[in-house]
């Protein structure tokens, strides 16, 4: 009964990741999309508790020149679909 959290805003212009830290449960997934992928590099994702799977949408990373991340794994559009299917609900943060 886990949740997929979709982040589409740059974490540097919003407070979303701090708010998200209180909103996630063990086993949840966080997917960075659109400007959210800028969180893939840097240390902001460390604010999230352990036990959360972190993903970044590959095509949005590629278009923005975000090439790699220590904290999140790349997923393509098919993977995005799969994440929405295997989790119980999706919450969009914007």
């Amino acid at each position: 009964m886990s949740t997929l959290h979709l982040i589409n805003r740059s974490p540097f212009s919003t407070n979303i990741l701090q708010e998200l830290a209180d909103a996630v449960s063990q086993g949840d997934h966080v997917l960075l999309v659109e400007d959210g992928v800028y969180a893939a590099s840097g240390t902001l994702l460390h604010a999230l508790p352990k036990g959360i799977e972190l993903w970044a949408l590959e095509e949005d990373c590629m278009s923005r020149g975000v090439t790699s991340s220590d904290t999140s794994k790349m997923v393509d559009m098919a993977g995005f679909v799969a994440l929405t299917a295997t989790t119980h609900r999706t919450v969009s943060w914007f």
Partner: peptide, 14 residues
């Protein structure tokens, strides 16, 4: 508690 709140509902609209 926002985490519990999300976990207790089937659909979330933001």
């Amino acid at each position: 508690c926002i985490a519990d709140m999300i976990a207790r509902h089937d659909v979330v609209m933001s």
